[in-house]
Amino acid sequence: MPTSNSANSAPAAKKSWGTSAVREVIRKRYFPDVTLTTQQGKQVRLYDDLIKDKIVVMNFFYATCEGICVPLTSNLVKVQALLKARVGKDIFMYSFSLKPALDTPEVLHDYARRFHAGPGWLFLTGAADDMELVRRRLGFVDPDPAIDADKTSHTGMVRYGNEPLQLWSACPGMSRPDSLVKSILAVDWKGGQRRG
């Protein structure tokens, strides 16, 4: 009856394992090959243009959100100020729309200007399916389907990472701005590594 015992007899056939580079495995798993649109109306590829070779800081929001988005975006403005000129050089900030149909590039442009978001911080929209795919792949989701479907309860977590160094984590977007900066710089280029 113990199923296990039957396992003792026959050795498994020799399997040849794939040897994909880990960086490639991560890209395939988490960064779908979609094209998004920035607040300037520019078309960008999620991996090639936004994530590859960069330190990135990512969150989700929508322009008409009256809940967490306002304090969250305001907090990230302070983070951008603390990171100074590195934003747009080797550190990039991305805010992805949860309501892409309403958040046209014009709306996003207006939103970014309203909050005084500086260069190097892109507000992104795209086809609804693509944005949903990006949201799920990047893990901005709640395991409770009711909470996940309710956009007013969307996550305020901020994901940050260093793509070439394969260092990724996340932290609450409403943490103190200097605390957020410390988290983000945990994935900074380590001694002797290239910058950007």
Binding site: G67, I68, F140, D142, S153, H154, T155, G156, M157, C171, P172, G173, M174, S175, R176, D178, S179, L180, K182, S183, A186
Partner: peptide
């Protein structure tokens, strides 16, 4: 909003 809080407050990374 998907963030853990203890007594309504968040942890500081440092």
């Amino acid at each position: 909003n998907g963030q853990w809080q203890i007594n309504g407050r968040l942890m500081d990374a440092d």
